[in-house]
Structure formats: C-alpha cells, structure tokens
C-alpha cells in the first residue's frame, strides 16, 4: 500500500507530473502544523522547539543510515524560508508598523542570501574530481573509488564522488561544500543569519512592546507577555 501511495504522490509540472517522495513532502505538511501548535502558548513553543531539535538529530541519523540521498532537509530549508517570508508579509506587515525601507532591506537580504545559497548548489558539481584528467604523478588515492585524486580530497558517501577540499556535506542545501563553493557558502550562511535576525527583530518589535536600546538607536522587543493573546 505504501508503494502505491508513494507512486500516486505527484505534483503537476511542465512535461508531465513529477513524482515526489514522502520524505521530501513531509516538511511541507509538518512545518505549518508545528508552527500552529507553537503559536498556542509559551509551553507549546518550548515543547515544539525541543521536539524539533531532538527530532532533527534523530531524523538525521535515520536518514543517513537508510536513505542518504533524501531531500527532506533541503525541502525543510525551502519551506521554512517561504513560510517565514509569508508570515512576515501577510501577518506582520498589515499591522502598519513596518516602514517601507525596512521591508526593502529585508527583501534585499532575502534575495541576496537566496542567490548565494543557490550559487552554492550550482557550483557544488565543480567540486567533483574528474578522474580522466588526473595527473599520473599524484600518489594519493581515494579509498572508495580506488583512483588517484589531488591532495585534500575526500570522498562523500552521500554525493558518491570525490570532492576537492571537502569541508562538509550540507544536508540543508543537499550538496557538498568544497573548494569551488566554500567562500559562497560562508557568505550565504552569514547573510541568512543576518536576514533571520533582522526579520525576527522587525517581527517582535511589531507584536511586542518595544524599547530603544544601545544609546537610543536600536529598537528591540522589551515585553512580549501578550504575544500569544494576539495570535490565538
């Protein structure tokens, strides 16, 4: 029955419906549900955060063992980015408390970090060692491929290839970080953190009682005790 369900799970796409696996579709359902539960009360938020933290660790070990090429984490990244942007644009902005330029800065940050992380993914393929071009002189060999590779090259079991100067396999972007995309990756991560912090400050100063801090220049949330009242 499970395989039939798996087979029927398709989304319409140009040139025939695309099949999507259950594990990739899971975040799209799970995230709004978790967000809704977390919005109920303080304890729900704490509970959902903790569940998510430990759930992610558990899921990672499970997926690495049984389904290493899963898109679950990548879809999770995409869904959360879209969900956060939608909540900001359709729940926070209508309070009429955000200034137009603040929204422009936020959208600019979202777009630039999006472009960076997209580039990280497209450039990830350049990291793989093309074995035919290898210089015969090099003595190092990949233990999995049993072929010669340049120095500081590591084999990625998930990508099933040898990655030059491999840093890590990023499950959230579903690609390997190596020589050709390492700088972009660091930039993209920093930009995303900046976007998230800025977005959080804008959102919380809108729904909470804000105050000026740090020499009366930065507006930060001060008292958020009635936040759950607003959304339920």
């Amino acid at each position: 029955m499970m395989s039939t369900f798996q087979d029927r799970l398709r989304i319409p796409w140009r040139g025939g419906a695309k099949q999507i696996s259950i594990d990739s579709a899971l975040p799209i359902v799970l995230q709004p549900v978790l967000a809704y539960i977390a919005a109920q009360s303080v304890w729900c938020t704490v509970l959902v955060s903790l569940t998510m933290l430990f759930g992610m660790c558990y899921l990672y070990t499970v997926f690495v063992r049984f389904l290493p090429r899963t898109k679950f984490f990548f879809v999770w990244t995409l869904t959360s980015a879209i969900l956060l942007l939608l909540v900001f644009e359709f729940n926070v902005v209508p309070f009429l408390e955000i200034m137009p330029h603040e929204n422009c800065v936020l959208i600019g940050l979202v777009i630039s970090s999006g472009i960076c992380l997209y580039k990280v993914r497209t450039r990830a393929e350049l990291n793989f060692v093309v074995h035919a071009d290898m210089d015969e002189e090099t003595e190092l060999a990949c233990s999995v491929c049993r072929r010669r590779v340049p120095p500081r090259t590591f084999h990625c079991l998930i990508c099933q290839g040898c990655v030059v100067k491999r840093d890590q396999h990023c499950v959230w972007l579903d690609c390997c970080i190596g020589d050709k995309n390492h700088q972009l990756y660091v930039l993209g991560v920093l930009l995303s953190v900046g976007t998230l912090v800025y977005g959080a400050i804008l959102t919380l100063t809108t729904v909470c009682h804000p105050s000026f801090y740090i020499m009366e220049t930065v507006l930060l949330p001060d008292d958020c005790s009635d936040v759950y009242h607003d959304f339920t």
Binding site: E89, V93, L96, I98, P100, H101, N103, I107
Partner: peptide
Amino acid sequence: ICCCMLHPGRFASS
C-alpha cells in the same frame, strides 16, 4: 509580486 509586496499602502506612513 515584488511590486505588491513593496506597495506603500501596506506600511506605516513614512
């Protein structure tokens, strides 16, 4: 979509 998102009527009057 960007034009809709950036429409000044959606924000505080600057």
